[in-house]
Design a protein around this nucleic acid. Sequence first.
DNA 1: CCTAACATGTAGAATGGCTAGCTATGCACG
DNA 2: CGTGCATAGCTAGCCATTCTACATGTTAGG
Lengths: 112, 112
Amino acid sequence: MHAEAVKGHLDSILLASLEPQPLHGYAIMEAVRAGSHASFDLPTGTVYPALHRLERAGLVRSKWSTVSGRRRRTYELTDRGRRRLREERQSWKLFSRAVSNLLSGAPAGATP
Amino acid sequence: MHAEAVKGHLDSILLASLEPQPLHGYAIMEAVRAGSHASFDLPTGTVYPALHRLERAGLVRSKWSTVSGRRRRTYELTDRGRRRLREERQSWKLFSRAVSNLLSGAPAGATP
DNA sequence: CCTAACATGTAGAATGGCTAGCTATGCACG
DNA sequence: CGTGCATAGCTAGCCATTCTACATGTTAGG
């Protein structure tokens, strides 16, 4: 299956992946691939810039470490990040409900 | 609530709105607003270019008419459009399931 | 008469994800 | 030994799409 566009929901996905525990970029990509049952296979050119964006926005915080010779940058949620994640969950609910409703051809009234 | 981005799912939404019956642009905007319970209030600068794009892609077909002095361009689905809509519905299911799964913090295994 | 709703459109900015390229280490296998 | 794969990080620039802002014209109603 060709790469599905994550359009507009990348941030939510990344934040959510960091909620249970801090992770480094590469591990995030794997977590997303696994958690989406391979629907999303995010390229590095998508993930790393996005993480930098989230850090600049103060939603995540990073620190470098070295594990068996390989340098890692581990990200964790900030308080603002956690708050944002809550909001994102809420708006995803509204968004997905709206799209599902429209795609189902509902006569305007279903799933209120 | 600030304008929700329809990012990447506009085409599906437009095609779906034309499934029950042909509509003109303005009516499509109203149908989407109603069907999404006002979550999506698409600006004309989004809808009209998108419809032209869909027409160029052979997914919809349009014809002009005049109703009480006002000119209208009414769009209807082509066969290719209908086929595409079926595909879009399928991939929306996969997409939304994947995102919901990730946002719920599922330990990779939920909603298979 | 003037405004709101109806109806369609375009140009250009802004966004944001993807492609393609780069660097570097550790480990398994032939 | 050296070749290749998985691990780990990064950026520049392309491209598609959506939104902002503007432009145009009609009809209905106060």
